[in-house]
Structure formats: C-alpha cells, structure tokens
Computed example of a mutant assay.
Amino acid sequence: MTHSRPIATISAAAARELTDAAAAAAAEIGVPMCIAVTCAAGNLIYFQRMDGAPLLSTDIAINKAYTAAGFGMATHAWHEFIKNDPPLLHGIVHTDRLVTFGGGYPVKEEGAVIGGFGISGGHYHQDMEVATKALAAVGLAAE
C-alpha cells in the first residue's frame, strides 16, 4: 500500500506565460495590475507588479490566487455562495487570506486544480476581464 499520491501543479514556465498574458491584457485597458500565480497548494510561484500598480493590490492578488487554488472556485463565486447563509457570511469572511470578490481563478488541467491565478489593481470587474483574457490566451478556461 502506498501512502502518497502525485499532485499535478502548474510549472514555473506556464505561470510566467500566464503572468505575461495578464500584463499584456492589463496594458490593453490601461490599468496597471498585480498578477499572482500559485501552485496547487496555494504557494506563490510567480508574481509581477506592473509599474504603477497599487501597493495594496500586491497581497490582494496573491490572496485571490490562494483562495482560488484552495477551494477550486473563482473568487467572485463566493458572494453568491455565502450571501444567504448567516454562519458563513459572518464567519468565513474572517478567514485569513480568503477573498470573496472577483479576480481570482483556479487554474485547471483535465478537471484538476493545478494552481491559482489572482489579479488586482482595478475594479474587480477589470481584474476579472484581465484574468479571463489571460487564461484564454494560454488555452485555459476561466471557471
């Protein structure tokens, strides 16, 4: 009997490709952003803070990627998930590093979470736009 299992995770090269695609998408809309990619376990693999991106967006982008990797769902889905559930609404939002607004997406390959992707710097709708464009540019789906 084996006591371990292999865990697929995003490569550093793929993380950089995704980050570069996000920076290009952010430049297209003229909003400098912070861009983070984590492994499947939520540990930071690659990060870029574009010139002029807000300082506070650094941790927000990293935490969006962490949240998306940790739960395997996009950060914008959290609002709908908790809004009518008082114990979650008033409890889980106090969990360190949990982000409950848009801009974070799980990175999946063949249905398995291989990483997290977080964008911060604009309104969360802009963050989502940049993230979905970047994911599409590298052949991944935004879920």
Rank of each mutant, 00 (worst) to 15 (best):
E80T: 14
P86Q: 05
P86K: 09
L98M: 05
R49A: 08
V93W: 12
V93L: 15
L56N: 06
G118N: 12
L140T: 02
K83V: 06
M1N: 15
I29M: 14
T9M: 07
A141Q: 10
Y66K: 11
S11P: 11
G118D: 14
A25P: 06
A77C: 10
R49N: 02
H3E: 14
M128Q: 08
D51L: 06
T132R: 14
V93K: 15
N43P: 03
A112N: 13
G104E: 06
H94S: 13
W78Q: 11
L98H: 09
L88F: 04
L56Q: 05
G30E: 01
E28Q: 08
G111S: 11
A27S: 11
H123P: 14
A131P: 02
E80N: 14
I82T: 07
F117C: 14
P86D: 12
A136H: 03
G91L: 08
A14C: 03
R49E: 03
E143W: 05
T75K: 06
A13V: 05
S57L: 09
A40Y: 00
G139L: 05
I82W: 04
A134C: 04
S11A: 07
S4Y: 12
D20I: 10
G91V: 15
S57F: 05
E17V: 07
C34T: 11
V130H: 08
D20P: 07
A65C: 03
H123Q: 14
K83G: 09
T67H: 00
V130W: 03
G30K: 02
F71R: 06
G91D: 11
E129K: 11
I45V: 12
G121I: 10
M73P: 07
V138M: 03
V107K: 02
A141F: 02
T19W: 01
A68P: 06
I119H: 13
P106D: 11
R97S: 11
A65S: 07
T2N: 08
V138Y: 04
V113F: 04
G139E: 08
T58A: 11
R97K: 08
T58S: 15
P106H: 12
D20R: 08
T58D: 07
A14G: 01
T2S: 13
V31Y: 02
K64V: 00
G122V: 15
V99R: 00
A77Q: 10
H125I: 03
F47Y: 09
A21H: 03
L55H: 12
T132F: 08
A141H: 04
S120M: 04
M128P: 04
A69L: 02
A142R: 00
S11D: 00
